[in-house]
Design a protein around this nucleic acid. Sequence first.
DNA 1: TTCATATGTCACCAAAAGGTGACATATAAG
DNA 2: CTTATATGTCACCTTTTGGTGACATATGAA
Lengths: 122, 122
Amino acid sequence: MKPDEMDAVFAALASEPRRRILDILKKEPGCNVNRVTEFFGDMGRIAVMKHLAVLEGANLVISEKVGRERQLWFNPVPVHMIYDRWTTEFSAYWAGQLARMKYRLENAPVPIDRKKRGGSRG
Amino acid sequence: MKPDEMDAVFAALASEPRRRILDILKKEPGCNVNRVTEFFGDMGRIAVMKHLAVLEGANLVISEKVGRERQLWFNPVPVHMIYDRWTTEFSAYWAGQLARMKYRLENAPVPIDRKKRGGSRG
DNA sequence: TTCATATGTCACCAAAAGGTGACATATAAG
DNA sequence: CTTATATGTCACCTTTTGGTGACATATGAA
């Protein structure tokens, strides 16, 4: 997966309305643009079409024109590819860091022992 | 994980330079801003600081000021959370769709059989 | 043809992202 | 003190994003 493709997928997913569109397409595979628009009370058709264009650019949505309608489909492949990448790329890092940081991850960073900076209190 | 947090994480990851910064921090944990900047020939310090602000906003980077330096750390927790979410949310969908679409995923969408539209010529 | 529907395209606008240089502040070193 | 280093902050600029309405096109129906 090339960097540009990753950019497109992450950027597409970095939007609540777009993630919501994916949910809609998961629930109603093959529905058309106006049907998707119905789910949004605060957004018009053109905005929905732009979001769909972003999603199609990331290959997260596939469309096919049937008559005057455009049928829309969620494509899970890019998500799966990132998922695969993370399992391989990050698992080693997680293992190493988790062993080093134990369960302190969410709480505080682990300062490097460059200089002695007073004792830890508690 | 709230929608806003997901937005922040995905938006932060939707940038090649930012993903590169994370790689740098994985390789050199605790290094400072200027050190990170050295890796970029086409970007200045202020731009790097803005990227770091985005990454910190997504909690993908944690920093700690030590003396006049700012030590930077990669935090894998948000990635892990999305990873976890995907394993649960998408696995069922993948199983169902993969069974239905078989290996045709990358190639073509699967049109719903709403109207009979001539025979497939292949 | 005529009318309704579904989508595509265009110009336009406001806000956010992504970059810069100039300057201020804080710390280390002499 | 002075000087160098590391970072923070500010105004400014350009490009992209995200939204709109008006209008054009394509299809379905009568």
